[in-house]
Amino acid sequence: MPVTFKNNPVKISGKELNIGDFAPEVALVGKDLSVSKIGGAKGVYQIINVVPSLDTGVCATQTRKFNQKAASLSNAQVYVVSMDLPFAQGRFCATEGIENLSVWSDFRNKDFGQNYGVLLADGPLEGLLSRAVFVIDPDGKIVYKEICAEITNEPDYEAPIQAIK
């Protein structure tokens, strides 16, 4: 799928995942430096909200909107994944009042980016993650996927929620 940043083509690398594929389980670092795994079968739905950096306006808006939507979900865990350092993620959550979802960093090994096919391989944001949303069902299958064609655009907010209803 072609992806652009400010209308300029960029390449994304890693294994492309599609609806129906098993979502790989990957270890990520939390804002308190704990390590946890997301993906795979968890017995609940998982909404994985992927952003290049919480330090940008679009990423911050996307995270705030998913935080609001997560408050009404009783059958899902909602995550934000970026390459931001855990300290910056913690500061962002404290400043913005983000309490209904958890933030995770892929900065150590880029395993999430590689295993979910969203690692930016070139362009000004090379090494960060492309903007995307994945929904994983309780059995670990991907039931929704959106990789934003233009990184500076927000994703669809309603479709991921509808995928778990």
Results as ranks from 00 to 15, higher is better:
N109C: 07
P9Q: 15
R64K: 14
C93L: 11
I142S: 00
L17T: 03
A76W: 10
K69M: 14
V29H: 06
S102P: 03
I98T: 15
E99Y: 13
A159K: 15
S105Q: 07
A60C: 01
P155G: 12
I142F: 10
E158V: 10
P24H: 04
D156N: 15
F134S: 14
Y116L: 01
I98F: 11
Y144H: 14
V29Q: 04
G20D: 05
C93T: 15
V103I: 02
P24V: 04
G90F: 13
A132P: 12
D106L: 03
V51N: 03
S34R: 15
G113I: 00
D21Q: 05
P124N: 07
P138V: 06
Y144R: 04
N18D: 02
L54H: 06
N8Y: 06
D111E: 15
I147T: 09
G43Q: 02
E154D: 11
V133S: 08
F107V: 00
N8L: 14
N75E: 07
N115A: 11
E158P: 14
L33M: 07
R108E: 05
A159V: 09
A76H: 06
A27Y: 00
P124V: 00
T4N: 06
K65A: 11
G30A: 02
V44P: 14
K6Y: 10
L54N: 08
V118P: 03
R131F: 08
T63R: 08
T63C: 07
I47F: 08
L73T: 14
D21A: 05
I19Y: 01
P155A: 11
G20P: 03
V26G: 01
Y157P: 12
N7L: 12
L125N: 03
S82R: 03
V78C: 13
Q89C: 01
I19H: 07
C93M: 13
L125H: 03
P24C: 01
D137F: 06
V26C: 07
G57W: 15
K42F: 07
E150I: 08
C59S: 04
F134C: 08
F134A: 13
P138E: 05
C59A: 04
K15S: 00
G90L: 11
V3K: 08
L129T: 02
E154H: 14
L73E: 14
R91E: 15
